[in-house]
Amino acid sequence: MSDINLKLHVWRQESRGATGKFEDYSKYAEGISTHASFLEMLDVVNERLAEDGIRPIVFDHDCREGICGSCGAVINGVPHGPQKLTTTCQLHMRQFKNGDEIWVEPFRAGAFPIIKDLMVDRGKFDTIIQAGGFISIRTGSAPDANEIPVPKEVSDGAFDAATCIGCGACVAACPNASASLFLSAKIAHLNLLPQGQPERYKRTRQMVSAHDEAGFGGCTNHKECEAACPKGISTDWIAKMNRDMLIATITGKDGKFA
């Protein structure tokens, strides 16, 4: 087991709209175990800051297993840091070397206002889902689960899209601060499945509108989102969303059979 010293700079911002700045916490980031996770490194730094009477760095986190989508920061210019397909909480310090300079700043997008330090408000993702990210089925009214067979490829495809954890790294990475990757994954998950067909075009139209109204940028196919996505969500879903959206807009269809 080896310990490393880091040149750590962390973005500090008191509240929404306040001006923030990078603080140099190198003296609190000495002797960090390479087996610790990135958030555990911040825990250690926080504990030391508190000893010096400095308010701990605020960052969002919960599961620390890479599944809840709470965590996320831009580490040396890359959302979730240097390791591919890895959330900030799953990033481990063995990815860094002794003496490395590390800059940590929050996801930046107009639609994700900063709450404090590294924590941002991703409520707009919920707004997008509320616009149509569901299949309308009242509890208790479902037919037997095996009534509708779903071809395995279709089901697997829907699953691939559904693994999005809603972390927002795609927005942080996109040069346009577009949430297209998240949006398209959510749409594709439901639009692929037979259960999702009746509301397919209405869902697409409403969710795309909600995305635009929320203030996210549009997609110009940079694919940075895909590179940053910890779950490897593919930009192919964006093409699929575009197709469904165009059909919805041009034909004015609301349902598949409308």
């Binding site: 700079h9 040396n76 700043e105 930046r108 940028g217 940075e224 940053a228």
Partner: peptide, 20 residues
Amino acid sequence: GRNSSARPTGYKKARQDQIT
């Protein structure tokens, strides 16, 4: 225009492009 205003405050430490 829309896209550039979607990130009113930019990164202070430049975002690193990966594959664009």
